[in-house]
């Protein structure tokens, strides 16, 4: 009798676990950071009104655009919040990361940097940018729509994403918390990206 019930129980356990896994991945209810080597969603970003940010990203003024519309081989996406102490502490490091990319003739133009303000209004994102003299584009994600799509990560979180030949996006680096040393972070990212000279 016991043997028979085990024969039934084991497949039932597997079936329940399988269904639970499908539920978890499909609803994103218990999501974590998206992992290295996996694809990154081609998120839709709000339009930019003009100025340096439009030029930097190489996108059209006044239109919403996707990550894949950004003119670069690689996009570093920082998920941050004006309200997060670590993001505040990290701001000078991220500014330094931008400078390191822009000062490097090989990397300039190849890697672009953007920030997504999880739960932040336009005012809050602009306040953060002004406060820390942020020179790369920051986007408001007030209702956590993008944040949900990218794994409901703790802030700050950094994704280094490479465009594929067929127009997709692949995660080369996925890091939670502080990058601490921007030089080292950039070197490790370049290694992981295997960029061709």
């Amino acid at each position: 009798m016991k043997h028979t019930s085990n024969i039934i129980r084991i497949p039932v356990c597997f079936l329940v676990c399988f269904l639970l896994c499908i539920f978890v991945t499909s609803t994103n209810a218990f999501a974590g950071p998206l992992l290295k080597g996996k694809s990154f969603p081609d998120i839709l970003l709000p339009s930019l009104s003009g100025g340096g940010n439009v030029e930097y990203l190489g996108v059209k003024t006044g239109n919403n655009f996707n990550l894949t519309d950004i003119k670069s081989e690689v996009i570093i996406v920082q998920i941050f919040s004006m309200y997060c102490p670590n993001c505040q502490k990290e701001a000078p490091n991220v500014n330094r990361l931008l400078s390191l990319i822009e000062e490097n003739q090989f990397l300039k133009g190849k890697i672009k940097l953007i920030g997504i303000g999880a739960g932040n209004s336009q005012f809050e994102v602009e306040y953060f940018a002004k406060n820390y003299n942020v020179k790369f584009p920051l986007f408001s994600d007030k209702d956590y729509e993008i944040h949900t799509k990218v794994g409901k990560v703790w802030t700050p979180h950094f994704y280094v994403i490479k465009k594929t030949a067929i127009g997709g996006l692949i995660i080369a680096v996925s890091v939670s918390g502080s990058i601490n040393n921007p030089q080292l972070f950039l070197e490790n990212s370049v290694r992981a990206l295997k960029l061709k000279k």
Binding site: L20, V24, F30, A31, G32, P33, I79, S81, Y83, C84, P85, N86, C87, A118, G119, Y144, H147, G151, K152, V153, W154, T155, P156, H157, S176, G177, S178
Partner: peptide
């Protein structure tokens, strides 16, 4: 075990992880 893998819903700071 599954619940332990829950991520923040409100984009909370890593400082409070």
């Amino acid at each position: 075990f599954i619940c332990l893998n829950i991520s923040p819903v409100f984009g909370e700071s890593y400082a409070f992880k």
